[in-house]
Write a protein that binds this DNA or RNA. Structure first.
Length: 490
RNA sequence: GCACCGGUGGCGAAGUGGCUAACGCGCUGGUCUGCAAAACCAGUAUUCGUCGGUUCAAUUCCGACCCGGUGCUCCA
């Protein structure tokens, strides 16, 4: 089954395929000037969903993500912090990868840093100059001559006149035309710059992606992806630079992930609804729940991120995990119930079809929940047999290869976040409930659970209930069943 | 202002020119349980922003309007 993916360039849903060999995909990564927020991660999570879906279908990938480690904001913030930009960006790059791991986002095959590819960018600018697309301005900056590239605007469906009339493009006295964009910025006093064949300075924002993508993946990519905001001007400029230099299509397929809302409003610092992953972890929300919420709404739809939604995701994951455990560890009679087997096969088919249909994660999720209900029901009625259970476990594993929420690593992740908060002087932001919840280690919990089991055996229900209440106050939930007592962290 | 996207139950959200409008969470009642929890069962939108139009038939197509978002400017 090939996957159908909306292509911004053509405006239609098309099969995503590699021209040859592994699928060459380039993703615009973060500018490492601050901690990543949930909007950033919505994009990277959906790209992770794409990545995992492709891998699940046996498609080999060559996936590159860049790290923008030099730009205006970095220069400004590093100067304010009084540290060299390399030191400044390193801290946030590390935090970014830590966040990615906490959210279960897989590492791409290649990470490309802008500052490590200055020669490639310079070379590309030289090529563009030879072909008449680039010119050097009086101050030593280099610009791209947009009028030389008539296809400019084909991705974002803009026409040049509209852009020029938009008027708010920066007016730079040295440019030939207001809409020309910077390839290379002349040095300013006190700013980091590089001495190169085209003069001293630092790269413009767009050139790094063209240079690194083409260096690592070749002149034509199968897929290029990023947040919807990057469509214009960033991706449009990448196309202009790359196609101007090679005369070949830069990327066949373009994928853009929609922005999210937070509590129905756009997320912004001034609205007071701006959250980094770390903010949420310190409030006691689980990384898995954040992941699940951010991927539950398909990537082309606007997601409304709310705290109610986070609770919903927490509970929904809990239900899936409980079900997974039940199927895995339950004692089932030998054999196979044909009806359940058919339902499982149907769920698998629906699940695969949903993801293949432009990554419809909402439908894929629904297919799984449908099966949860019918299988639980059959299990309660004693009609679910061993073979059915293992089929279902296999299906859940297939689901989890993309959704990655079944394994409970939440306590571990939250402890790591708390350790960071401690070192960053932000431990005060951790909620009392969260600190209480992690105050007991697994062994201590188990000891109390064992004591309660003893109390129950001797019908000392008062003591048993007291222990249960005490544990609940620390966020630990007790479940008695025929097969013994289980516990879990809320 | 111009362009594009969206408005579906208490909340989130899928979807389709005509079958009972998925799925999750929540809530209510029941089964089970020492009591809980988990799980299951039943209930929870005569209706898909508003008003018109096309059609035998529209939530689904068209138009206007209202609301939210995005781009035109740094932004995932």
């Amino acid at each position: 089954m090939s996957i159908q993916l909306f292509n911004t360039l053509s405006g239609t849903v098309e099969p995503l395929a590699a021209a040859s060999g592994p699928l060459r995909m380039y993703v615009c990564g973060p500018t490492v000037y601050d901690y990543g927020h949930i909007g950033n991660f919505r994009t990277f999570l959906h790209i992770d969903v794409l990545r995992r879906t492709l891998l699940q279908q046996g498609i080999k990938l060559n996936h590159v993500m860049n790290i923008t480690d030099v730009d205006d904001k970095i220069i400004r913030n590093a100067a304010e912090a009084g540290v060299p930009i390399g030191e400044y960006t390193k801290k946030f790059e590390q935090a970014f990868f830590e966040d990615m791991a906490w959210l279960g986002i897989q590492q791409p095959e290649h990470i490309a840093r802008a500052t490590e590819h200055i020669p490639e960018m310079v070379h590309l600018i030289e090529t563009l100059e030879k072909r008449g697309y680039a010119y050097k301005a009086e101050d030593g900056s280099w610009y791209y001559r947009i009028e030389k590239f008539p296809e400019y605007g084909k991705l974002s469906k803009k026409d040049l006149e509209g852009i020029e009339q938009g008027a708010r493009v920066d007016v730079d006295e040295y440019k030939d035309s207001a809409s020309d964009f910077a390839l290379w910025k002349a040095p300013k006093p006190g700013e980091q710059s590089w001495q190169t064949e085209i003069g001293a300075g630092r790269p413009g924002w767009h050139i790094e992606c063209s240079a690194m993508a083409m260096k690592i993946l070749g002149e034509t990519l199968d897929l290029h992806a990023g947040g919807e905001d990057l469509m214009f001007p960033h991706h449009e400029n990448e196309i202009a630079q790359s196609e101007g230099a090679t005369g070949k299509p830069f990327a066949h397929h373009w994928m853009h992930v929609r922005f999210l809302l937070v509590e129905g409003r756009k997320m912004s610092k001034s609205e007071g609804n701006f959250y980094t992953l770390r903010d949420l972890l310190l409030k006691g929300y689980k990384a898995a729940a954040i992941r699940f919420l951010l991927i539950s709404v398909p990537y082309r739809h606007q997601l409304n991120f709310t705290f109610d939604g986070l609770m919903e995701s927490t509970n929904a994951i809990e239900r899936l995990r409980t079900f997974h455990q039940r199927m895995k560890t339950g004692k089932w009679a030998a054999g196979s119930n044909a009806e359940i087997s058919t339902q499982t096969a149907h769920a698998l088919q629906e699940y695969d079809a949903a993801l293949a249909n432009d990554l419809n994660t909402a439908e894929a999720r629904a297919a799984i929940f449908d099966l949860v209900r019918s299988a639980n029901s059959a299990a309660d009625a004693g009609q679910l047999l061993a073979e059915n259970a293992s089929e279902i476990v296999r299906l859940l594993e297939r689901f989890d290869a993309v959704f990655a929420v079944l394994e409970d690593k939440d306590a571990e992740t939250t402890r790591a976040a708390l350790a960071w908060a401690e070192s960053a002087g932000r431990i005060g932001e951790a909620t009392p409930e969260l600190l209480a919840a992690l105050s007991l280690g697994d062994d201590e919990v188990q000891a109390l659970v064992d004591e309660r089991t003893q109390a129950k055996a001797s019908r000392n229900f008062a003591r048993a209930d007291a222990i249960r209440r005490e544990l609940l106050e620390k966020g630990i939930l007790i479940e008695d069943s025929k097969d013994g007592t289980r516990w879990k962290r809320k």
